[in-house]
């Protein structure tokens, strides 16, 4: 045995410079990153964007690699995927021949049970060994979502919970092994559950430095503390309605304009401070909004490098995120 040479972890871009800066380069290779949020918060969209971005060359923050999408929540979002891949292709027409080429680098596999996931992960080892000899080896694996597999199959009894936790660890050990061996970035999406406990218990069961609220409810990522011990980093997507101002409507009635404020939070990560970053979802994908990186409320968090350096890449032409803030889901 010999100690390893230490090099900074490679990162895979999410396809948005602001989100990349927020995450200090993107999703790290060699470890598991969890992305949780309510339904409709944009988990799958971000996942798809990551799958596409993996094929970008290193100079653009990608891994020049193909990716694998393991999905367990039918239906497969192929329409959205098509939209995103078109937008992706149009952003980099000089790099790829056609939209088809772009899509061909994303492999898809269905999952129908937790045990099936374990089987797939076991088989991946030899498949990835073969892949690693190709020009575009698989370097990104997305599991969307882990919760769908585990929330249906197991009863809420101590016996089943123990069996479930054990399976978490088995899967996570294997995934981390693959991530390490082949330099793969693993992204796992997770659902959320409402927190319904008296405040006395909250301290003990609290994970991470921030209270997570979304749509006005106190929530936390699903699957409990044993799954939380299986991931290296945990990101959380929240959405909260906010009133942006009163506009005069037709007639004399005041119509208050509301929009959904979406934020990405770092709950915990070995390399990132707890902080948050606003983002929007538009036709071209998910994009961070410039200058919105905040350190977390409590004084114990540490400032990110990004916050020291306020010169964010504000709204690249391709991304048109400035406009979309106001376009994003208005309701009256």
């Amino acid at each position: 045995m010999r100690p390893e040479i230490l090099l900074p972890a490679q990162k895979c871009t999410l396809g948005c410079p602001i989100l990349d800066q927020f995450l200090a380069g993107g999703v790290p290779c060699g470890s598991i990153t969890e992305l949780s949020g309510e339904s409709g918060s944009g988990k799958t969209q971000l996942a798809l964007q990551l799958l596409l971005s993996a094929q970008l060359p290193l100079s653009l923050g990608g891994l020049s690699a193909s990716s694998l999408y393991l999905h367990s929540e039918p239906p497969y979002p192929f329409r959205r995927f098509e939209q995103l891949s078109k937008a992706f292709y149009l952003s980099y027409p000089q790099l790829f021949d056609s939209v088809e080429c772009v899509c061909n680098n994303v492999h898809v596999q269905d999952l129908h049970s937790a045990d099936h996931l374990f089987d797939v992960v076991l088989k991946l080892d030899s498949a990835l060994a073969e892949e690693s000899r190709k020009a575009m080896p698989i370097k990104v694996i997305v599991i969307d979502s882990i919760a769908a597999l585990f929330r249906s199959e197991f009863e809420n009894t101590p016996f089943d919970l123990k069996r479930r936790a054990s399976l978490f660890f088995k899967i996570s050990i294997k995934l981390k092994l693959l991530a390490k061996r082949y330099g793969i970035a693993v992204l796992v999406t997770n659902q959320v559950v409402d927190v319904m406990r008296s405040s006395g218990d909250l301290n003990a069961l609290r994970i991470g430095n921030i209270d997570l609220y979304s749509s006005g409810r106190r929530i936390c990522p699903a699957l409990g503390i044993s799954w939380a011990s299986c991931v290296n980093s945990r990101l959380f997507l929240s959405m909260n309605e906010e009133i942006v101002g009163n506009a005069m409507g037709e007639g004399d009635a005041n119509i208050s304009c509301r929009r959904t404020k979406r934020e990405m939070h770092v709950v915990f990560a070995p390399h990132l401070p707890s902080s948050s970053c606003e983002y929007v979802i538009n036709r071209e994908g998910v994009f961070g909004v410039g200058g919105q990186i905040k350190a977390s409320v409590s004084g114990t968090s540490f400032k990110s490098d990004a916050s020291k350096n306020p010169t964010f890449l504000l709204c690249d032409k391709d991304y048109s995120c400035g406009k979309s803030v106001t376009l994003d889901s208005f309701s009256s």
Partner: peptide
């Protein structure tokens, strides 16, 4: 666990 991040070190 793979949580040793060189950039943080």
């Amino acid at each position: 666990e793979g949580s040793f991040m060189v950039e943080r070190v």
